[in-house]
Amino acid sequence: MKICIACGMPMQTAADYPQGDMEKDYCLYCARPDGSMHTFDEKREGLTNFIIKTQGLDEEAARKTALEMMAKLPAWKSYFNP
């Protein structure tokens, strides 16, 4: 089972992949409508908004948490350790 390189979600079935494409290394939540992967800024804002919506965190705390999560993920490591 692959783990999404951009958000860490385990991808179990084709439904977890963008447009069902199991060749991709990222999940459907990390893809734009055309199937390409979100940019760093898009993902940071997406994760921040997701955390605020589902867990109610303060905006700055949510953004900080989103960045800490992203720092551990292969897709974004180079942004933190240039």
């Binding site: 860490g8 979600m9 997701f50 955390i51 589902t54 867990q55 948490t65 800490e68 999560m69």
Partner: peptide
């Protein structure tokens, strides 16, 4: 502080499905 995101990450893993 740098480990505190882990609890939020765990909650995110379930909240997406619950939502």
């Amino acid at each position: 502080e740098k480990s505190r995101h882990t609890l939020i990450m765990i909650q995110s893993a379930i909240s997406i499905h619950l939502n």
